[in-house]
Design a binder for these strands. Structure first.
Length: 646
RNA sequence: GCCCACGUAGCUCAGUCGGCAGAGCACACCCUUGGUAAGGGUGAGGUCGGGGGUUCAAGUCCCCUCGUGGGCUCCA
């Protein structure tokens, strides 16, 4: 017997293996009214009305209004798509792989004999899917003995399904199949009660995907779809995709002349154009100042180092596939650096250290190079050469907690100053294979946890998800259109201090092994700027804008006055340009708007006479004339505060 | 690397059935000298990513190659 606590209905006892469908019948037998239930959540797991319940606990019915119900919808749409493919291209030609749900929809990996899908096939498949939905096939669940299941799928030549049964489902587990009309699929579920319940969907793209994600396995064709209960939600999502396209940092980078990536130089290697370099320079300066303020010491290290260094650090053995190949100089091997750590370790070791000088915090905007497969490169987000805002903290055990707390505060303060205020924090603990003694892991993991708690943030634990050399915290930020980006990381390293035999002389006049913490706030400057551009849709705050004000003379006769103001503003430290082109004022304003320049200063006869500027802001339009000095004060204050206002 | 799509002027893109390579923006020059999101005219600008093939004829069809984009972890 099972004991189920069903929300709003209370405790009930049922036979083992009962389904929601049967529970509803029983409850209705008691005269209870239940409407619109399409599934349930059993102890946190989404199930459908056919899933046999085999454990006691909490059961909550869900309707289309519950977000969990999307899981059912999307899973079923994957099946409906598979059914459509079979009907279109022949049951025996279509071999199904896996068809799971994704964040906004679903996909199915399939192999279709004699058919290579193209985008033009998608509408055809969509039509067929709509037809199947209209047919309103009831969805049924069956459990089969292993042998029978294999026989069934062998008959249907579903080689991948058989592979799953044989290699992925543990012996004792029942094998469930779902049917809708003539379509049968090996599936764990959950599904909607019948195809007629399916909501709004759209097939959006095609891709290749290796069977089980392993190179060397056959490549299947993957069809991606998105799905929601209503057309309205689907449309909203499609609009979001449009919006994301508009904000694409690669597009903005080109339009605003910020950076370029060209085949002439090489994929994944960014060139910063003058305007992009301004942004980067501002960010780097602010970063340096803040680090000096918080007790870091800035260092610089070279881009290459001798083979032996990378052998000692372990990179040659464990990281080689991500490194640029070795080069030979005077019979010595050298590597371009994929990380800065070994150099910082050498700096630490440049002389003997006393416990009194700890903690030592070494910081560097270090440009590293990593080999990424050509297919994964993506604008500034995934590159082969990038600059880490790197730092290594070397400290004593009694300082660990305080240091971690300081790092986390620095991370949050910094990210907030760029307009990010929603975070996701992940704490990753010790994996099976790891170095370092138990006590170190405990001290380190504990200090990470305490630091997160002390800043009052919630976090998720990734049990066993730490690197082999130490536990870590990862911080993700949420951008203006809701996407999460991984930026900051704080990692303990128990490996390098051992490998490099780092030590300090303690109060007891003996050698002690220090703790080493590796951390970055932006992760990669390139990537962070990419995220910033997408977050602000290119409308950067004043302090980061490459051109902060455009001076717009109304006619040629006003150019001398415009230049006079330009000089004055430049002397005040503002980044300004004068638009001296022989164009009408309207055109100049339009172009400045398109370049997302925060201020437009229009000058004509009136302004020249009264020594003022007519200020137009990107956001609000014309805000009226003011003396030049007043404008300078205003702009400087906003820059100082890193404010988003204008 | 692998699958699919794409590659035409500096940029964004059109180019039908294989038949003289186009538009808008940007750029240059001329006219125009203006009051809060595109004034008008003229002009220059092309190995159609590269190589090979089919053809009387290739931007267009075929093969190879380079590059770009979307994917290739999220367990039936």
């Amino acid at each position: 017997m099972l004991k189920l606590n069903i929300n709003r209905f209370g405790e009930y006892e049922f036979e083992d293996g009962i389904t929601i469908k049967e529970i509803i019948q029983a409850l209705e037998g008691e005269g209870k009214k239940i409407k619109g239930v399409i599934g349930g959540v059993l102890n946190g797991k989404v199930i459908d009305i056919h899933t046999p319940i085999r454990e006691s606990g909490e059961l909550r019915f869900i309707t289309k209004k519950d977000p969990e119900s999307l899981e059912l919808l999307r899973h079923s749409l994957a099946h409906i798509m598979a059914q459509a493919l079979k009907e279109l291209y022949g049951d025996e030609n279509v071999h199904l792989g896996i068809g799971p749900t994704t964040e906004h929809g679903f996909y199915y990996d399939v192999e279709i004999e004699g058919k290579r899908l193209t985008e033009e096939d998608l509408p055809v498949i969509e039509e067929k899917m709509k037809e199947i939905i209209k047919r309103n096939c009831p969805v049924e669940r069956k459990e089969l003995p292993r042998e029978e299941a294999i026989e069934l799928f062998e008959k249907k030549r579903e080689i991948y399904k058989i592979d799953i049964i044989k290699h992925q489902i543990p012996g004792g587990e029942p094998i469930s199949v779902y049917t809708q009309c003539d379509f049968v699929d090996l599936c764990r579920g959950p599904h909607i009660p019948s195809t007629g319940e399916a909501g709004a969907f759209k097939l959006i793209s095609l891709a290749g995907a290796y069977w089980r994600g392993k190179e060397g396995n056959p490549m299947l064709q993957r069809i991606y779809g998105v799905a929601f209960w209503t057309e309205k939600e689907l449309k909203k999502y499609m609009n979001m995709l449009e919006e994301a396209k508009k904000r694409d940092h690669r597009k903005l980078g080109k339009e605003l002349e910020l950076f370029m990536i060209t085949d002439e130089v090489g994929g994944g290697l960014a060139l910063w154009l003058p305007k992009g370099a301004v942004i980067r320079n501002e960010i780097e300066n602010a970063w340096k100042q803040e680090h000096i303020k918080r007790g870091y010491q800035l260092v610089y290290t070279p881009h290459v180092g001798k083979e032996q260094l990378w052998k000692t650090s372990g990179h040659v053995d464990f990281y080689r596939e991500n490194m640029f190949p070795e080069m030979q100089i005077e019979d010595e091997g050298y590597f371009v650096k994929p990380m800065n750590c070994p150099f910082h370790v050498e700096i630490y070791k440049s002389r003997q250290r006393s416990y009194k000088e700890l903690p030592i915090r070494l910081a560097e905007l270090g440009t590293v190079y990593r080999y990424e497969r050509s297919g994964v490169l993506h604008g500034l987000m995934r590159v082969r050469g990038f600059t880490q805002d790197d730092a290594h903290i070397i400290c004593r055990e009694d300082q660990v907690e305080e240091e971690i707390k300081g790092v986390l505060e620095l991370i949050l303060d910094t990210l907030k100053s760029y307009g990010f205020d929603e975070f996701q924090i992940f704490l990753s603990t010790r994996p099976e294979k790891s170095v370092g003694d138990d006590k170190m892991w405990e001290v380190a993991t504990d200090s990470l946890r305490k630091a997160i708690e002390s800043v009052g943030l919630t976090y998720e634990i990734d049990e066993g998800g730490g690197a082999f050399y130490g536990p870590k915290i990862d911080v993700k930020i949420k951008d203006a259109i809701g996407r999460m980006w991984q930026c900051s990381t704080v990692q303990f390293d128990f490996n390098l201090p051992e490998r490099f035999d780092m030590y300090y002389i303690g109060e007891d006049n003996k050698r002690h092994r220090p703790y080493m913490i590796h951390r970055a706030i932006f992760g990669s400057i390139e990537r962070f700027i990419g995220v910033l551009l997408e977050h602000y849709a290119g409308q950067l705050p004043l302090w980061l804008s490459p051109v902060q004000a455009k001076i717009i003379p109304i006619a040629d006769t006003h150019i001398p006055y415009a230049k006079e103001i330009e000089t004055k503003l430049k002397e005040a430290g503002l980044r300004v340009e004068t638009d001296e082109r022989n164009e009408r004022m309207n055109k100049k304003i339009r172009d400045a708007e398109l370049q997302k320049i925060p201020y437009m200063l229009v000058v004509g006869d009136k302004e020249a006479e009264s020594k003022t500027v007519a200020v137009r802001t990107k956001k609000k339009g014309n805000i009226g004339a003011m003396p030049v000095d007043e404008f300078i004060q205003r702009a400087k204050k906003i820059i100082e505060e890193k404010s988003l206002e204008l």
